[in-house]
Write a protein that binds this DNA or RNA. Structure first.
Lengths: 328, 328
DNA sequence: TTAGTATAGGTAATCGATTGCCTATAAATA
DNA sequence: TATTTATAGGCAATCGATTACCTATACTAA
């Protein structure tokens, strides 16, 4: 169906080799005349080289994969944008795989990306250690974004922020603001561990006790915030809420406003991530900003530098920022 | 680097053909013994068939492309999710290309997807007619999502809602709610035309005049809403705002709340799209809901049915829903 | 006994682009 | 004039999987 290199060669009366050389800029020994003729034919026929055939031969596809847990959580598209922008600049395409936070889908995504022979993979939210080792053995460069992975396994890169410290400061901010009963609402994934320990540490260092009934964990979405705070308020009073991400905070704000509870006067709220419209919430959300776009961009840069120039993959820590706005 | 079919064949002492047949289920004339042996070797070696080699030979890649204008607008990830879910069910992968609403990037995305030999493409936000024709000539099945494309060109599918009617009803709702001075804030893309005419029609049918100084168009994002309403309020008073999408509405709400203007008492606001957390805004946003997930799912279904069973691509109109919440 | 057929699996061409190596001419140098 | 060398471009193997077609054996039916 599509035009092939062979056809271009036949029409212009040269060999496939010549066409290939022209396309790939190995045209040192190609006359200007043939070059023009071939290039003209290519645009005229709308010829686009078959990336599969090329990939098969040169074993480089100029594609990188990005595995994310939930594309409807705006934090991840922001990372994706960072990745895409960087990738596009280097002539790489990005294949995005959504896993819905299911380990099985994560595994399938890897299989799929391997099959597609992507040159590298960026992924967020780690599998359990066991599965990860298997994946890292594949030899394909991998950069993990969004959390520190504790594994001896080397040979993969990391872009992360200290989420434990982030949540710790978030909690401290609430403590300093005078909150007495501070709830914690978040998700329950593997990646949650760091966050929760930040909360626990902050509480303990302030001499507070962590009360199980003030903790609710489900998923990183709005519903969790909404359900969580309602559940907690059934049996408890709170005057501060540490949220595992901004979506949860939105749910909390919604539930509180339905109950006529004033924010931040009666209850103070800290989010996490800083989705780009969190600042536009009413009241604007106080949160810990993860530099999502930057994380994506740096991950892509590290990965592509490794693919193209064998620069080693590294561990790179980016800083979070505290954004105090209207909810604390 | 990666294990190949040839290696599997050598290890198990059969031919490549046999391995291939087993993988693809053409194992009618394969003994249970060999089948087990080969399958065992495959899992043990972690063999994943090279999708490029297969794609090159069978001219089917089981990949579809999705071109979207702005991945950080939550409306599109929602569509993407609908596409992905459907696609995954049928064993298709999805390549997402973000264009930042730049026509050039849109064109490049098509080129890229052609090169990748995707089996079909779903895209939102149309190029100008001229460029589209070129693309449709490629022979690859295409489904356009999100707006009606007026072109004689056949052979591509459409999933759309009547955005003109949607905005018209949105405007009428404001008129019925007693608004006298109704502003319109939206984007200025090609795809905007329908929306704006909905506003104009509603105004005219109600005997109102469209005042240019109450109209602001820039982009479908929060900033546009924020800037737009502030600009308008410099010289005018308004008591109703029709927004081109929910992000714009969020920006408007923010700006108004900064000015201490009460919503909906002093100004009423209608959004458009219904992003999944719009209902959680404070006050919850009244909006016209586009069934984003459903649009994605149906687009993918139509496309895959065409790819797999040559079912013709059709024009399909989905219905919007009016969601009256707290801003009108 | 022999032709026919079901079973099991192998051979080799093919998909489209790349690339090391070869040929042929022209120009430069000895 | 003879020999390099630069220029221009072609040949054919190759990447990994698929598949039409072929071979060989075992079993059936006539």
């Amino acid at each position: 169906m599509a035009v092939t290199m062979k056809e271009i060669a036949e029409i212009t009366g040269v060999s496939k080799a010549t066409v290939s050389k022209i396309i790939n800029g190995r045209d040192r020994y190609i006359s200007e005349e043939t070059r023009k003729k071939v290039l003209g034919c290519i645009t005229q026929m709308g010829y686009v080289p078959n990336a599969m055939a090329r990939g098969l031969k040169v074993k480089k596809t100029r594609m990188i994969g990005f595995i994310l847990p939930d594309i409807s959580n705006p934090f991840f598209p922001e990372i994706a944008k960072g990745i895409e922008d960087k990738a596009k600049k280097e002539g790489f395409g990005v294949v995005i795989c959504n896993t819905d936070d299911r380990a099985e889908a994560e595994y399938q995504s890897f299989q799929f990306l391997f099959a597609q022979q992507v040159d590298g993979i960026i992924f967020t939210r780690a599998l359990r250690r066991a599965n990860m080792d298997k994946v890292f053995e594949s030899g394909i460069p991998i950069v993990v974004v969004d959390r520190e992975v504790n594994t001896k396994q080397l040979g993969f890169g990391q872009i992360f922020i200290d989420t434990r410290q982030g949540i710790k400061e978030s909690t401290n901010l609430l403590i300093q603001a005078g909150c007495e009963k501070i709830a914690y609402i978040s998700a329950q994934y593997h990646s949650e561990y760091d966050r929760y320990s930040g909360y626990v540490e902050a509480m303990q260092e302030a001499g507070r006790q962590v009360q199980a009934e003030l903790v609710y964990k489900n998923q990183y979405n709005v519903d969790t915030g909404y359900e969580g705070i309602n559940k907690i308020l059934e049996t408890n009073k709170v005057d501060g809420v540490v949220c595992g991400n901004d979506l949860i905070a939105i749910g909390v704000i919604r539930a509180l406003s339905e109950r006529g509870i004033k924010i931040p006067d009666q209850v103070k709220i800290m989010g996490f991530d800083d989705m780009y419209f969190s600042q536009y919430m009413v009241p604007p959300l106080s949160t810990i900003k993860q530099p999502a776009y930057e994380m994506g961009a740096q991950a892509a840069e590290m990965l592509i530098d490794n693919i193209l120039y064998q620069k080693p993959l590294a561990k790179k820590k980016l800083n979070f920022t505290i954004c105090m706005r209207g909810t604390v």
